[in-house]
Nucleic acid binder design. Structure first.
Length: 589
DNA sequence: GCCGTTTTCGGCCCGACTGTTTTCAGTCG
């Protein structure tokens, strides 16, 4: 049986192959749209295929539905295999190079027989590429640079790194006197977990002066492009930064456009057309081709005005992925997203008792410094010997030390005595119930045997959730962004089990993890699963990672009501005890 | 290939920059 992910990947490959064939671009887009809509759908894939309900997803018509069904039922798709046979698989790696699209890749393949990056590099060096029609020596040079860049950097960067670099560049840009408005744009502003490049937008009456100032930034390796309204540079460290400059009255349109996402923009433009308007990055104007009455255009000075003109509530940047936010904004159903200053505490912190760097007292002081009223300590358990995990004796000594500190803190602040308990290979926990019962809460996490098959891993985790002592499921997929793939686990099943067992799921705020991924929180929320934004701090500095957790939670549509560590000190205790205390007789669940 | 609040045909978001051209194609966002 074929999975949804495999089907999405197949549709994306078909789109690329059609592009290579030089097919109608709208046909290409139809496959891209179909892949995207399928991916974003939370419906049960098998069910909708088997019941012939694929067309309900939108963007999937008779032809593509037929192909998906054939692929699902037989594990093969004749159409796909014929397309694939036309081009070598290695050709796809050429698309990863900056500046190469379908037309150029096709030309390289058709005319020079180039199938791999290695062959392309050789052809650039010996001059064959420069001689191709439509190519030239500059193009060959740029391809070589793109190959070099790909070799040096994977091309994606952590949100935390991108945030730091962006703040430095912002400080540089703001030093210019002629800036009237400035904004970060792109995936960074939308809070994506990894970032491809940095985007900045400026409103000014002095475009050339501002652009000159931008390219004078100290940490630039190379200026990639510089024109009257935009410039691109490659920073030392490999990330690209783009600046776009507009006039003041254009700023809200440009801001909306460059924050994206592309899919959100396309949807907004479609909505504008429905009013008889055409929307671009500079303005909104009557659509000259409008076939019906054109609605008068209101004054627009801010992004808020723009959304309101389109009869939408303002959509925060984190939600702009065209995953339902426009429909929600139209019907006033957008959530009031959780904010940084809603946080009252945090769980899942390590101390030097296991693999952290600071003491209980230092972690508590750092938490109070951040304005938090409570902090949960959760050092590793004994099976994580690589992390100096605690055995029963050391754990219970730590519990006693925490109780003593709490007597000193009085009502001002509280440490919770917890544990990051390993979920063993078979789903059992690393400590007996007698030991776990002495703790305020338990985070249960997988730290070994990552390679189990999906069904086994899913059963393993669900078994752990069934323990009344497991309060929170820690980093549910174990992924390390840009470094390690998630282990195979059926998150939909895990979320269902968390709902049934009233287990909280962690949003691990460490920017290398951001796990559970923002894409799954909407589903979790619908099922009533609560979130704990946990810093997984291994030092006092690590508490600041909560910032990235809040950003990801916002991206997952979560409100302060969905996040348990927004609860006050007095309200959080019953939540931590909920699984251990069966509901009172006659009480509603 | 998909889609429809006048459409089952004829649209499908749109502009900047580069490099190659000599008016524009390709790529990117």
């Amino acid at each position: 049986m074929v999975s949804k992910d495999q089907t999405v990947a197949m549709l994306e490959t078909i789109a690329r192959l059609l592009e290579l064939k030089g097919e109608n671009p709208f046909k290409v887009r139809a496959y891209v749209n179909a892949a995207r809509n399928l991916e974003a759908s939370s419906a049960n894939f098998s069910e909708i295929v088997e019941n012939g309900r694929l067309d309900e997803l939108g963007g999937i018509g008779e032809a593509i539905a037929g192909k998906i069904t054939e692929f699902y039922q037989t594990g093969r798709l004749e159409y796909y295999e014929q397309l694939r046979a036309g081009f070598p698989d290695t050709l796809f790696e050429l698309f990863e190079l900056q500046g190469l699209g379908a037309k150029k890749v096709k030309a390289l393949y058709d005319r020079l027989g180039i199938k791999t990056i290695a062959e392309l590099e050789a052809a650039c060096r010996d001059g064959r590429v420069a001689e191709l029609p439509g190519f030239g020596s500059k193009t060959a040079q740029n391809i070589l640079q793109a190959i070099e860049q790909r070799r040096k950097h994977a091309g994606r960067y952590l949100l935390s790194d991108a945030t730091l670099w962006s703040e430095q560049i912002l400080a540089h840009l703001k030093a210019h006197p002629d800036i009237s408005q400035i904004s970060v744009a792109g995936s960074l502003q939308r809070g994506r977990e990894t970032i491809g490049d940095l985007d900045f937008l400026i409103a000014t009456k002095n475009p050339s002066g501002v652009i000159d100032h931008f390219v004078s930034y100290g940490l630039i390796e190379r200026v990639l492009a510089k024109g009257d309204t935009k410039a691109s540079v490659l920073l030392q460290g490999g990330i690209q930064a783009d600046l776009r400059v507009v006039a003041n009255h254009e700023f809200p349109f440009a801001q909306n456009y460059f924050v994206g996402s592309k899919e959100h923009n396309v949807a907004l433009r479609g909505r504008a057309l429905g009013f008889g308007w055409t929307l671009n990055e500079y303005r909104i104007a009557p659509d000259p081709g409008a076939r019906k009455g054109v609605k008068p255009i209101p004054a627009i000075n801010t992004e808020e005005d723009l959304y309101h003109a389109l009869e939408l509530d303002y959509v925060p940047p984190e939600l702009r992925e065209n995953l339902g936010e426009i429909e929600a904004a139209a019907s006033h159903q957008l959530p009031a997203l959780v904010e940084w200053n809603n946080l009252r505490g945090a769980f899942h912190c390590h101390t030097h008792a296991s693999d952290g760097r600071n003491s209980l007292e230092e972690m508590a002081a750092a938490a109070r410094e951040l304005g938090l009223r409570y902090l949960g300590i959760a050092d590793h358990s004994k099976s994580s010997f690589q992390a100096n995990g605690l055995d029963e004796k050391r754990l219970l000594a730590q519990v006693e030390a925490i109780r003593e500190l709490n007597r000193q803190y009085g009502r001002e602040f509280r440490l919770f005595a917890g544990l990051e308990c390993d979920i063993l290979r078979d789903g059992r926990l690393d400590f007996s119930n007698e030991v776990l019962a002495q703790l305020d809460y338990v985070v249960a996490s997988v730290h070994a045997s990552f390679t189990q098959p999906e069904a086994e891993m899913t059963r393993r985790i669900i078994r752990a959730l069934e323990s009344p002592y497991v309060t929170i499921l820690g980093h549910p997929t174990g992924r390390l962004l840009l470094a390690r793939e998630p282990y195979q686990v059926d998150l939909v099943e895990v979320i269902r089990a968390a709902a049934e067992t009233r287990t909280i799921i962690e949003l691990n705020a460490n920017p290398r993890r951001l796990d559970m991924d923002w894409r799954f929180w909407k589903l979790a929320k619908e099922q009533g699963v609560k979130c704990a934004i946990n810093p997984d701090a291994h030092s006092t500095q690590g508490l600041h990672d909560l910032w990235f957790g809040v950003l990801s939670a916002r991206k997952g549509w979560l409100t302060r009501e969905d996040v348990v560590n927004c609860l006050s000190l007095s309200s959080i205790v019953p939540v931590l005890n909920a699984k251990k205390t069966p509901p009172a007789a006659g009480a509603n669940a």
